[in-house]
Simulated assay, not measured.
Amino acid sequence: MADVFAGTVEPAKTRGAWSDYNARIAEDIVKCGQLQGDIASELMYPASRLAGKNPLVKSFDFRPSELTIWGGENGAGKSALMNQLALSMMSQSQKVCLFSFEMDPKRTLISCMRCAFGRSPTTQDLFPFFDWANDLLYIYRNQGAISAEYCADGVFYAAKMLGCRHIVVDNLMMLTTGNSSDSVMQSQKRVVQTMKEIAIATGAHIHLVAHLRKPANGQGQNAKPSRFDISGSSDISNLADNVALLRRNREKEQQIIDGGFRNDQWDSEPDVLLTVDKQRATGDSSMTPLWYDKPSGQFCISSARYLQDYMPSGMSGIDTTKPHQLDAIQGLKERSKPWEPI
Rank of each mutant, 00 (worst) to 15 (best):
N74T: 13
G75T: 04
G75Q: 00
G75C: 06
A76F: 04
A76V: 06
G77F: 02
S79C: 05
S79M: 01
A80D: 00
L81I: 09
L81Q: 12
M82H: 07
N83L: 06
N83H: 14
N83E: 00
Q84A: 07
Q84V: 08
L85A: 02
A86F: 07
L87A: 08
L87P: 11
S88F: 09
M89Q: 01
M89I: 00
M89L: 03
M89F: 05
S91G: 11
Q92P: 07
Q92I: 04
Q92S: 01
V96N: 10
V96S: 12
C97K: 12
L98W: 00
F99D: 10
F99N: 14
F99V: 15
S100M: 14
E102C: 12
E102R: 14
M103I: 12
M103Q: 13
D104H: 15
D104K: 15
P105E: 01
K106P: 02
K106S: 09
K106I: 11
K106D: 01
R107V: 10
R107C: 07
R107N: 10
T108K: 05
L109P: 02
L109T: 13
I110E: 12
S111D: 03
C112W: 01
M113H: 03
M113V: 09
M113K: 07
C115Q: 15
C115F: 02
A116S: 10
F117R: 03
G118D: 03
G118R: 11
R119Q: 09
R119M: 09
S120D: 01
T122K: 15
T122S: 15
T123D: 09
T123S: 12
Q124N: 10
D125P: 11
F127D: 05
F129C: 09
F130D: 00
F130V: 09
F130G: 02
F130H: 06
W132G: 07
W132C: 04
A133C: 04
N134G: 01
N134W: 00
D135C: 12
D135Y: 10
L136V: 03
L136E: 00
L136S: 03
L136M: 08
L136I: 04
L137W: 00
I139D: 02
I139Y: 02
I139H: 06
I139Q: 08
Y140I: 08
Y140M: 06
N142Q: 11
G144K: 07
G144H: 04
A145L: 12
S147D: 14
A148R: 15
Y150T: 15
C151P: 02
C151T: 07
D153N: 08
G154T: 13
G154N: 06
